[in-house]
């Protein structure tokens, strides 16, 4: 980064091919994104595996795992009801994957030379796919359980007929917007947060390069800001995972119980 460093805050979202070769449009292309997905997977499996000692009196690790599953079991049960247990695996998968990806992406692996941290959830191909899966579950459960009666979802109970003509299209549009809002929310949060971190990290470096009381002052200020945003990023990462899981559960509840 010598000379007039031009730091591109978008570079961190670049997907590159690993193991040599140009990036090609092939499903089997192993990219840095795929690598970090596998890292996320490994962390999740290791974490969950460590909590399956099935002790009567749980240790710290087992307690943490039990708190996680208990929390999500609670979310599904409160949102969907007793039937919610069937949908726990997907709600769990979505929550845990988004949470782990967000937090691993927020870790300062960049200080290790050669390591290029990558936040999987900052790719809308990832969050969008997950929201499409959630939406597909909602549609599938809705039509499988209620058949064409599922369309009554768009007509709130007790609506006068005249209003139905007005409300049904609105309900339909709001229903169809769900997968987009669901997928965009975690993507935007991670995208914006990481741009912010990169930009202010850039200020730290540029302030140090400039030198002088002004440069060091700005550098220090920017550093404090980066630390603050990093903490915020951990919070946002958890909130986004929770929101995704909760909304998925609520949407499934619509399909299971209509309303």
């Amino acid at each position: 980064m010598a000379g007039p460093a031009k730091i591109d805050p978008m570079h961190q979202f670049q997907i590159t091919s690993l193991g040599g070769g140009e990036l090609q449009a092939s499903p089997f292309m192993f990219t840095n994104s795929a690598l970090w997905m596998l890292i996320v997977l490994a962390v999740i499996v290791a974490f969950m595996w460590g909590g399956t000692k099935r002790q009567l009196v749980p240790g710290r690790w087992q307690t943490a795992v039990e708190m996680l599953t208990g929390f999500l079991e609670n979310v599904t049960r409160q949102s969907i009801g007793p039937e919610g247990r069937k949908y726990l695996p997907w709600v769990f998968t979505a929550f845990v994957f988004i949470l782990a990806a967000n937090w691993i992406g927020a870790m300062p692996f960049g200080i290790v030379p050669g390591a290029h941290p990558f936040t999987v959830t900052s790719q809308f191909t990832v969050t969008g796919t997950m929201s499409i899966i959630s939406f597909a579950i909602v549609l599938g459960v809705g039509f499988w359980k209620h058949g064409l009666h599922f369309f009554s979802l768009f007509v709130p109970k007790g609506t006068p007929f005249i209003l139905t003509l007005l409300i049904a299209p609105i309900e339909f549009v709001s229903f169809m917007v769900r997968p987009f809002s669901l997928g965009l929310r975690p993507f935007i949060a991670m995208f914006a947060g990481h741009i912010l971190l990169e930009v202010f990290g850039n200020f730290v470096v540029q302030g140090l390069n400039a030198g002088g009381p002004m440069g060091y002052g700005i550098s220090l200020l920017a550093f404090l800001f980066v630390a603050f945003v990093s903490a915020l990023e951990l919070l946002v990462g958890a909130i986004q995972a929770f929101v995704f899981a909760l909304l998925t559960a609520l949407y499934i509840n619509d399909a299971v119980n209509l309303h």
Partner: peptide, 17 residues
């Protein structure tokens, strides 16, 4: 360029989870 590999690996990872 990437959507195919993104989906492929994501589905594998999500499937395993």
């Amino acid at each position: 360029l990437v959507y195919q590999s993104q989906w492929f690996w994501l589905l594998i990872v999500l499937g395993v989870i």
